[in-house]
Each structure stands twice: as structure tokens, then as C-alpha cells.
Amino acid sequence: MERVPILKIGDILLVSIQVDMSDQTAIQLQEDLAERIVATGCHGVIIDITALDIVDSFVGRMLSTIASISKVLDAETVVVGMRPAVAITLVELGLSLNGIRTALNVERGMELIAASRADEWDEAADDEGTETTATA
């Protein structure tokens, strides 16, 4: 069975799905990712689906589950690179991917994660009454 590689870049885990995943591979990815979040202490997960030519209800559910699991583990998940044809199909299928944040590409996804981390820092900083230099 193929395994989807998980890369660590700074404070972010990057998963770039390059293969047509079997359901087993998808479940395996879900488990691997949870372990890696805990092991690395990363606070952001980016799942790049640029190469996926379809997302069916199973993969859609996997993405939702990953987002929920990482939230519990204090990490933000952003799904990036969804193709237009895939998005149109998902709308028709009736899958709304609730609770998943999305961005057009990896770069935007990283900005999104950085921005939400900065917000959290701002809040923490405000409590202590100090200035931070976080930028969005």
C-alpha cells in the first residue's frame, strides 16, 4: 500500500497528495498525520490537493476528520489547491466540507495559518499589555 509523505517545514506540516489514494491509504494518512502533529508539536497543517483530479465523499470525509483531529491537537488545517472541476463536482455532490479552511495555493495557505497564529499571539499579548510585531 502506498503511503502519503508528510513534510515538516518550520512550524507547518505539508502533505502533498500526489497519488490516486485508495481508501486504506487515506485512512493511513489520517493516522500518520495525527501522530506527526503530536511528535513535532506543529501548529499548522497544509494539505495540498492540486494533483487530485477527484475528491469523492470518502476523501471529503477524511479531510473533515483531519481538520477536526488537528483542531483537538491545537493545529490549524488548511486544504489548498482544489481544482475548479473538483469544486464544482463537490457542490453538485452536496458535500460542503464543513469546518475546513481552504486557500488557493500553498503560499496563501501558509499566510492563512500565519495570520490565525498571529491573532492568537495578539490576544495573548493584549492580556499582558505588551506589543507584538506579528504581521499577517
Partner: peptide
């Protein structure tokens, strides 16, 4: 788009 819809339906 039609390819994508059909493949998705087939997958389900």
C-alpha cells in the same frame, strides 16, 4: 468538469 463528475460518481 463532466469527466470529474463521472469519475466521482463511479468512485462512490
Amino acid at each position: 468538469v463532466d469527466q470529474t463528475k463521472l469519475v466521482t460518481a463511479a468512485s462512490e
